[in-house]
């Protein structure tokens, strides 16, 4: 049999790259479970992650809808937002807490959701590793930067 044949099925040529002794690779499923699949890690991380998604989701409904209502609907809508508006709000510990809570919950909720998506869709171990690395870096950066701004905000900056 010639090794240069390009067609894999050759009804006309009558030749195929594959025969009984040289079968084609079977169509493998991604990440199949084997005997060597890592056994239980004995942590409750996934349980807490699952619970966190539900609880933070409920809290976020109130926080985000309230946020949108205040920012975009009440008191003249979006046109009122400016440096002075933000400075005025962050003078109150109530709004500081609101925004801080919203930042942390939304970022962690979103990050955990994306982690789930990566787990579900990325097949190759390397892809999973790098996508998750990127995700965690972005999350930590945003959360820290946001927290820093909320706590060190200076209304007299120029």
């Amino acid at each position: 049999m010639s090794e240069t044949t390009t067609s894999t099925v050759g009804p006309v040529e009558g030749e195929s790259l594959y025969d009984v002794d040289h079968p084609a690779p079977v169509i493998e499923a991604p990440r199949a479970r084997t005997k060597k699949t890592p056994k239980s890690t004995r942590t409750n991380f996934e349980l807490y992650g699952w619970l966190f998604m539900r609880l933070s989701g409920i809290v976020l409904v109130v926080l985000v809808l309230g946020h949108l209502l205040i920012q975009l609907v009440l008191d003249g809508g979006v046109s009122k937002i400016g440096f002075a508006f933000v400075a005025g709000r962050w003078a109150s510990p109530f709004w500081q807490t609101w925004d801080l809570l919203m930042l942390w919950l939304a970022m962690l909720h979103g990050a955990n959701g994306l982690r789930t998506v990566i787990n579900d869709y990325a097949e190759r171990p390397n892809t999973r590793f790098w996508l998750k690395n990127l995700l965690y870096t972005a999350t930590v950066f945003t959360v820290l930067l946001g927290t820093l701004v909320i706590f060190t905000f200076d209304p007299n900056i120029r």
């Binding site: 894999t8 099925v9 195929s16 594959y18 025969d19 084609a24 690779p25 079977v26």
Partner: peptide, 10 residues
């Protein structure tokens, strides 16, 4: 149909 002894494609 898929038969690895004939073709790599289903």
């Amino acid at each position: 149909r898929f038969n690895p002894e004939i073709s790599a494609e289903a």
